Amino acid sequence: MAVKHLVLFQFKANTGADAVKEATSRMLGLKEGCLNPTSRKQYIKSLTGGKDNSIEGAQRGITHAFVVEFESIEDRNYYVNSDPHHSEFKNYVIPFLENFVIVDYSEGVF
């Protein structure tokens, strides 16, 4: 069953535009860089993202959103727990973040 992995970022106020651009580019680059340890092929089905443009005012500081789609829970679990490329990205980005939210779901499963 496919899994969608929502990632929401709030960057620290003192994070410059170049650092935000680099962090978001690296986030989007995870699709190409995360490889299955056995097949050595990309296992992220899709990865999209962008800067908030909501007019509702309910963002609570969140400025950037990403949707990562995995074919299976096993792929998501590898990504979260073991993928060295993802781990390297987390180590890079966390110092720039004031807050982040991650929510995973499978469509139609409530």
Rank of each mutant, 00 (worst) to 15 (best):
M27C: 13
I94Y: 11
E98I: 08
R40C: 04
F11N: 06
S46Q: 12
S46L: 10
G57V: 14
D18I: 08
A2P: 15
G61V: 09
K41I: 06
E32F: 12
P37L: 03
L28Q: 11
P95W: 08
N14P: 04
Y92G: 03
R60G: 08
C34N: 00
E69C: 11
R76M: 13
K41Q: 15
K90V: 15
Y78A: 01
A65T: 04
M1N: 15
I62H: 07
Y78N: 02
H86N: 08
A58V: 15
K31Q: 14
R40A: 06
G61P: 03
N14D: 15
V103R: 10
S39W: 00
G57T: 15
T24K: 06
G50D: 03
A23I: 01
T15P: 00
E74V: 10
M1K: 14
M1V: 14
F9D: 01
A17N: 09
N77I: 07
V101W: 02
F96C: 01
G50Q: 09
G61E: 11
R26A: 07
K21I: 12
D52P: 02
K51L: 05
T15K: 05
I73W: 05
L30A: 02
A23F: 09
Y43G: 05
G57I: 15
N91I: 09
G16N: 11
G29I: 11
Q42D: 07
R60C: 12
T63Y: 02
A13M: 13
H64V: 04
E69F: 04
E74Q: 10
I73V: 14
A23T: 02
S46I: 07
S82H: 08
K12H: 08
E107W: 08
S25W: 03
G50V: 06
H86I: 00
F110C: 12
A19C: 05
P84G: 09
G16H: 05
K31A: 13
D83K: 00
E88S: 14
F110G: 13
F89N: 00
E56L: 15
P37G: 00
A23M: 07
Y78M: 00
A17W: 04
D52F: 09
T48A: 11
V80G: 02
E107R: 12
G108W: 09
I102H: 06
Q42Y: 04
M1L: 14
E22V: 12
R76L: 09
E98Y: 07
E69T: 14
N81Q: 11
L28F: 12
S46P: 08
E98M: 08
M27Q: 07
S46F: 10
K21L: 14
D52W: 03
K41R: 13
D75T: 03
G50C: 10
L35Y: 07
K41V: 06
N36E: 08
V101E: 00
A23R: 04
S82K: 11
R26H: 11
F100N: 02
L28S: 13
P95D: 07
G33S: 14
A2L: 11
R60K: 15
K45D: 08
Y105D: 04
F100Y: 08
L28T: 10
I73N: 12
A19Q: 14
K4G: 00
I62T: 06
